[in-house]
């Protein structure tokens, strides 16, 4: 009986990924994390519609003295894709990037200040 298993195991061959020696990729439609097209985003609405639909509050608006920034926290993003549908300008998309780990929280946060919006 054990030999049958052994035979079956051997016949399966090698399936193992060579990552990280060879690069890997996730399928195209796989939702990794939200990405912001900075040239499209104007941070409009109070709050913007993407912020309203974001369940884990990965998207937020930071306001300090007239300076308005959109903050995208990749560590909080669950890649549900609701913000993609909510953005009227198509500024958000979901990428299939999987190498998301970081050694500090700061590296997982991207902030966007729309052009023409000057700090006070």
């Amino acid at each position: 009986m054990q030999l049958t298993w052994l035979w079956r195991g051997l016949r399966t061959g090698v399936l193992t990924t060579r990552y990280p020696r060879r690069p890997e990729r996730m399928p195209d439609g796989w939702r990794g994390t939200a990405v912001l097209q900075r040239d499209q985003c104007v941070v409009e609405g109070a709050p913007p519609s993407c912020v309203t639909v974001c369940l884990p509050r990965a998207l937020s608006v930071e306001e300090t003295g007239g300076d308005r920034r959109l903050r995208l926290d990749h560590a909080a993003c669950i890649a549900c894709g609701l913000c993609v549908a909510a953005c009227p300008r198509g500024a958000l998309s979901i990428s299939n990037e999987f190498e998301l780990a970081a050694s500090s929280r700061a590296r997982l946060i991207s902030e966007h200040r729309p052009k023409g919006d000057r700090a006070a």
């Binding site: 996730m26 399928p27 439609g29 796989w30 939702r31 669950i78 890649a79 549900c80 894709g81 979901i94």
Partner: peptide, 15 residues
């Protein structure tokens, strides 16, 4: 799970 990632974008079919 890989099939789910390909057809629905999530390995556990969330969403």
């Amino acid at each position: 799970l890989r099939l789910a990632a390909r057809i629905a974008g999530h390995r556990y079919l969330f969403g």
